[in-house]
Write a protein that binds this DNA or RNA. Sequence first.
DNA 1: TAAATTAGTTCGTATTGTGAACCATTGTCA
DNA 2: TGACAATGGTTCACAATACGAACTAATTTA
Lengths: 154, 154
Amino acid sequence: MVATFTIALVRLGHLVQQVFGDVGRDQDLTPQQAQLLCLLVGGPVGMTELTRTLHLEKSSLTGLVDRAEKRGLVARTRDSRDRRAWLVELTPEGERVGALAHDGVEARLEALTGELPVEHRELLASAIDGILAEYASTTGRPRPQPDRTPATPT
Amino acid sequence: MVATFTIALVRLGHLVQQVFGDVGRDQDLTPQQAQLLCLLVGGPVGMTELTRTLHLEKSSLTGLVDRAEKRGLVARTRDSRDRRAWLVELTPEGERVGALAHDGVEARLEALTGELPVEHRELLASAIDGILAEYASTTGRPRPQPDRTPATPT
DNA sequence: TAAATTAGTTCGTATTGTGAACCATTGTCA
DNA sequence: TGACAATGGTTCACAATACGAACTAATTTA
């Protein structure tokens, strides 16, 4: 009984990746690019924040954004507040593709959970939130929210 | 309120990958190698079955197993029933490392869900099973498990 | 037995991901 | 003010990941 639960979690992780892969394939995007574009549909995001939400090292993100930029999907703009920083935003083409990818992911994941009773759905969401919060607290790694408060000493 | 749920799912996916990454790092394994070894602690598994559970193309799996074999973690043995097929099994060293990784992953994921009330936990597990089953049915791709057990939990 | 499938490998290629070293800007503080 | 640490990103070299196409060998089908 113990193992099956973790296996379920692992499979769920695969499934999410799979969904990004499926959706991305339709738009000729890699799963990672699809994730990146989905993150940007809400507006420009800074590189540092992207590394946190995507759980990537900064050098990895540079490459990912480079390739997306080369394909004309995203563009870098200077952060007016901090001349070291860049904001990544969607180009018109990126906007189009990103919206398709975003909607596709959402539609598929929604469809998968659509069969669940509503209260199960909500419970699932809050349970996941709890897990995420627990993980954040045990690792000491601050959550994506750009709160400047150092979560842990040292 | 719609988007937050999918975001939670996506983050959960990242988290699972992260856990394999963390645990793997301790044993000097990549996340993918850690997953592979974890799958093999129960005994030898055929290549084709591995491609299904890991959601990899066969050529990708060949490479993954090759590298693990080169490190002395796994070995290939012929399938006595089908001379085309191979079984992948852990070497003694792989057994040692794999057990550590497996236990590590389990411990961390268990810890993350340990805070949840028991009934939430069970609900979460069954909800995930439902999602997985739904995904399997919509894609038409057969689940990893061979036909001996019905996909829907009783 | 010929033809179609299946199991895996090989090969070429693009992508992903990391850490170390580095530059420029910003923040700190004496 | 000026030294100096910290931060934001890039570059580089490198290993691992992932895929599809083409291939060999064994198995199944007709």
